[in-house]
Design a protein around this nucleic acid. Structure first.
Lengths: 340, 340
DNA sequence: CGGTCGGGTTGAGACGATTCAATTAAATCT
DNA sequence: AGATTTAATTGAATCGTCTCAACCCGACCG
């Protein structure tokens, strides 16, 4: 109710509004005596600075938006924590927005963030083509693509998804699998397409005797993974793949659950390898092999790039940082032992 | 760079700023012809409304803050999604802040949110005593306590934690356990204290032959759960409890991992029951029994209360909504079969 | 024909903080 | 003492939008 403003503080402290502002922003230039009076007035009135007005005047805010594909996926939570840890040191706030893989929601979040005049936006876009983002950047809101290769007009941090798919595929082939299924989401999501391309490359490199199947779902969730698993479990053993490479760990966990409810054993009946190496992967019913990405580092680097661009917009050159994934082998991917 | 304002639009469309504002806010009162001209100008200039200025003038923002104890805990993510689903229908934005169980971080987030003049705050406080929150509310920012009983001065939604602890305890006792350990966090966190009180109540009700031990950690994370598990695994079998009730599923998963690495079997060597019933609980190495809370409902109800308070601050009476938890029994809690 | 009504439109304040040129007071120098 | 520098403080202008009283003008009424 009673939200005081700088003017009331000034009155009570018997100084001008300019002085109050100085106390707030450059306390060293005001004399200790008045500074003290002003602080007292602030405390007595319970005055809280109106950041909105400040921002309007100053022109730039201290918050950045982070738009992710799925907050329920711990991978993105870790990315967010990485970003936040850096933001903290620059007293900047990160607001986390969830597009849930829906282009409409993504759009609405971007509109809101732009209207809010955020300092910049970190985003894992729903679709590979990002004309909106380019317009947005052109209008003056810096954008950094996260976990997604840039089109060249903005900065990006990503992990080499193709390589990730490739090492996952090579691993399964080396373990003796000859019938591998890629379990993923829509190919319009760049990460999915690249991981698929990677495993396809590994399969091709292995020569003709390895077969690659593909199952996709609209979203990369546990539920979708489970659904695909159900269908897979119902196939006759001869037709069923012996290994599955999932586009992320959530789907892999879903697959695992479906296998369990159908009494199929992992890795004996089906080897599984996931992607992201979220913390829950190691705690799964069968500890999950996975392709690890440097999650926090991704977030930290993304916001570093953003802060750099904001600090010196002039001489900033857009960069594309790419990290390497690596393979974490656990029990869910084991040598193929054909049923006797 | 080139961020246009309402004035430039007005110039281009050859109308006054007032008219542009009307087109934006009450398009029905401006004639179709000028409305069209204004829209064209907006599109041509790439004008995006400055929500900051609007907010300054109008005095209230369309965003609410949600401060949670741990974003890495899927429980809170689900609460957040519940809140967001309701917020969406009121074109309101939810910004998610993570206190990570740290009172300092919580304080900083609250300060920022208040400075931002958010419409209201939903919070799961770090400590049971919340003088800051009451001052904050007194200064005019509505606060709703989430998953935490209110002190009476504000609204709250919570689940009966005492009851939850009680049914978990009763379940373990009924399954034959006579030496139970409560694994939790600091008792200053109300939820932890209540869940502990609940299980203690069940133990007391069972008569003298059931023993309750307690282990606590500074935070309710997987890592802390694992650490406690390590210590527990090293005890001689005779001293080791036969069952553990964890204050949340994260700790339970950690405990589970520790048992696995020490070659102890769940539930044979140690039965485990968690709290929250997060999705990952069902996918754990040993599917986890857990006390389920209505997560999304919690979030939805919280923001409903907030919106109600904002809509009619005058005749609003603070309410305290309490839900009932229920028990989900899986494999991790099984009848006690003493080692032969 | 004068008066009234009402749909459209206008433009001058607010909103709350920051900034900066101008002013005053005090301190230092010559 | 008078001149000059330094330190503190002031207050008006500004940021971009909304609001509202005033205004304009054509239509309608008696």
């Amino acid at each position: 109710m009673a939200t005081r403003n700088i003017k009331e503080v000034a009155q009570l402290a018997r100084v001008s509004v300019g002085t109050v502002s100085n106390v707030l922003n450059r306390p060293e230039i005001v004399s200790p005596a008045t500074r003290e009076r002003v602080f007292e007035a602030i405390k007595k009135l319970g005055f809280v600075r109106n950041e909105v007005a400040r921002h309007l005047r100053v022109g730039r805010s201290r918050t950045v938006g982070l738009v992710v594909l799925d907050v329920a996926n711990p991978f993105f939570v870790d990315v967010a924590q990485g970003a936040e840890s850096v933001a903290d040191d620059h007293d900047t706030m990160v607001v986390l927005c969830n597009s849930a893989g829906d282009a409409g929601r993504e759009r609405r979040h971007l509109d809101q963030l732009e209207q809010q005049r955020v300092m910049g936006i970190l985003i894992t876009p729903v679709e590979a083509e990002t004309p909106w983002l380019e317009e947005l950047a052109a209008r003056g809101t810096p954008v950094v693509l996260v976990d997604s290769p840039a089109t060249g007009l903005q900065c990006s941090v990503a992990v080499d998804d193709r390589l990730g798919g490739q090492i996952a595929g090579a691993h399964l082939i080396e373990r003796g699998h000859r019938r591998i299924m890629f379990v993923g989401g829509p190919m319009s999501v760049k990460q999915v397409a690249d991981r698929h391309a990677g495993v396809a490359g590994a399969v091709a490199a292995a020569g003709g005797d390895v077969e690659l199947l593909t199952a996709t779902a609209p979203t990369l969730t546990v539920a979708e993974g489970r659904a695909i698993g159900e269908r897979m479990a119902e196939l006759p053993a001869a037709e069923r793949p012996t290994a599955a490479f999932c586009a992320n760990d959530m789907m892999a966990l879903g697959l695992l659950q479906a296998m369990a409810t159908h009494g199929l054993r992992v890795p004996d009946d089906l080897a599984i390898i996931g992607y992201d190496d979220i913390d829950f992967a190691a705690a799964a019913a069968v500890p999950l092999s996975s392709v690890r990405q440097p999650r926090e580092l991704l977030g930290r680097t993304a916001i570093d790039l953003l802060l750099e661009e904001v600090a010196e917009p002039e001489q900033h050159r857009h960069r594309q940082v790419i990290f390497q994934p690596d393979l974490v082998i656990r029990e869910s991917s084991a040598p193929y032992r054909p049923q006797s």
